[in-house]
Amino acid sequence: MDLETFQWLLTDDGQRLLDRATHVYVDAEGDPVRAASSVRRIEPDADRAAAALTQVQLRARAVAKFGDDAVGMYFTPDALEQSTRARVAAHRAARLAAAQPASVIDLGCGIGGDLIAFARAGLTTAGVDLDPVRVAIAAANLAALGLPGATQVADATSIDLSGFAVAFADPARRSGRGRTFRVEDWTPPWSFVQSLLTRAAVVKVAPGVPHELIPAGVEAEWVSDDGEVKEASLWSGPLATVARRATVIGAGGLATLTEDDDPWQGRERPVRELGRFLYEPDGAVIRAGLVTAVAAGVGGGLIDEHIAWVTSDDSFHTPFARGYRVLEEVPFREKPLRAALRERSIGVLTIKTRGVDVVPETLRKRLALRGENTATLVLTRIKDTGTALLVAPF
């Protein structure tokens, strides 16, 4: 979609077409071929018809990230994929607002997902992006939601940042070959990110960012949403309060864990015998290197120094880990394991692996399960020995 077509969508005629395309899409039950044929009968201009129907389809997909806001917003496929989930953006904006900065500039604002969160948090916001279409969409999204904020087409690396209290950046992690994990391929590049981190800034990076890349004095926060690690944020200057943080967002709200919660920092990791309960730390906790903080929280230890399973003799509910009751140990080798599962009439099996070279989907097929019972199987190592445990989540 080019800029001219998008601007037409914002006109009265474009809005009427969007409204009719929405009804057509619903009537077609999401069938893109039927919907496209119907929209083309309404609007003969192919580009306008395609743009309207694409917006309807993207809005439906965007509900998972933006909730009810999505039905009135605008997107491009790539920008929607790259945008931050609303709950994650809201957490970052709330944390930033708590620091009471005078203003924040979004360097690479895309379609405005983070701008929306910043504005809702009461921050004075501005956003720039190299893509004129994304800038126009960001402005339209702010307007659609009744939020203030300025947008401009500009190169983030050439902006004078002196007038802004905080700079936020979400470098594009794609090259001509698709998604990239090389920081040299980011846009803006890693060298620009490093320069930002010498002042008050927040930079969104991939959750797999190597710890050795994080400059001294910069806080790294890993964030998971509904159990899925979504991103890491680097906080610099006065915004950095600790070195590492894991933030977990779920149905029960938000919880955060830092190295200050870990009495084992700088000490030998607490390994102990398998207890009556296992705890599977959230991915954000693992990325942040705070598994031993979870162990301390449940009065337990690790089953192995190098594996992120925590064990305890006590039952705890914690937002930072999923808990399981250990039922019994079963054979680790495939043939006797298959016999043990059949003996227990287990026909549906959830397989969790950590520290062993096993592909759950492949193993499940080879086990040829049958029976009326369901179970959860943990395959891991304890003292360098392959171990299989039947467990029950609680």
Score class of each variant (00 low, 15 high):
H91G: 03
G178Y: 10
A375K: 05
A156E: 01
P281L: 02
T380W: 02
T22Q: 07
A144F: 06
R41K: 14
V33C: 09
R267Q: 15
R245T: 02
G386C: 10
I111H: 05
T125M: 13
S236D: 06
R272C: 15
D262E: 06
A28F: 00
E343I: 07
G14K: 01
L3K: 07
A150Q: 15
R354S: 04
A201I: 02
I351C: 09
S224K: 13
S312E: 10
I303V: 15
A308V: 09
V285P: 00
T380P: 03
V63P: 11
A62Y: 00
L130S: 11
R41L: 12
P171M: 10
S236L: 03
V229F: 11
V356Q: 05
A246D: 05
L213N: 12
T292F: 04
L53W: 08
T353W: 02
A284F: 02
A35W: 00
S195I: 03
L58S: 00
A50V: 05
R173Y: 04
G30A: 08
A143W: 05
P171G: 09
A98I: 09
A51P: 00
A86V: 01
V202G: 07
D384T: 07
L3G: 03
V271P: 03
T54Q: 15
A340W: 08
V39N: 00
T157A: 05
R16A: 15
R92E: 00
V56T: 00
L147W: 01
G355W: 06
P148V: 07
G300A: 00
A117F: 01
P44G: 09
L147N: 01
